[in-house]
Amino acid sequence: MTDDEKRLSALYQSMEKENSPDHLDARILAMAERGAAVHSVPLESKDTSRWSSWRWPLSSVVSAALLVGVLFFTTSPILPPEEQVLSAPPRYDVMPSAPQQERHEYQAMPEGKRQVAERLELDVAAEQAKESRVTSKALTRERLAEIDRLIADGKTKQAGDLLLILVEEIPEVKVRLSEAQQTLLQDALHRAANSQ
């Protein structure tokens, strides 16, 4: 600040200080009192301006989260990319290859489709069990034929041992044995008992 500025400032401050007239003060204060009655907002609520300023962003985030949640539970599940490939399009005629995939697919199915899928699964399982039984019978027949060939070749001891093993594995095969096979079985059992 230069000398002139300082002197001018001091001179200005030494000037006569006119004050606002009293009637004007009274008028303005009366106006302020009327205004205060209108100001119904308490001071505490003005202090919550931080909440006010974050209200809309927070509401948007919560709404978005709710929307995502609703979509997650009502439509297709959100799966990792590899599982999405396995599960899409849905194939209800094939048994799920893994428990995880099975659970996800079943969660995604409507009730009616889920019942159909369960029935299909039961049918497939029954078919597989039937196939297994057929395969087992064929194998038993083959083993009995082998025993017959050994008997025909005079290898009775070897045939008796094989028959003994077969009967131990599949006891119900006894009812299907021929007379020669039953005789051979009696001999093999005798031999086994004597050897013990």
Partner: peptide, 12 residues
Amino acid sequence: LAYAGGDVQAFR
């Protein structure tokens, strides 16, 4: 701010 909360004395 006090006046905004209704405090006339603050305005005075």
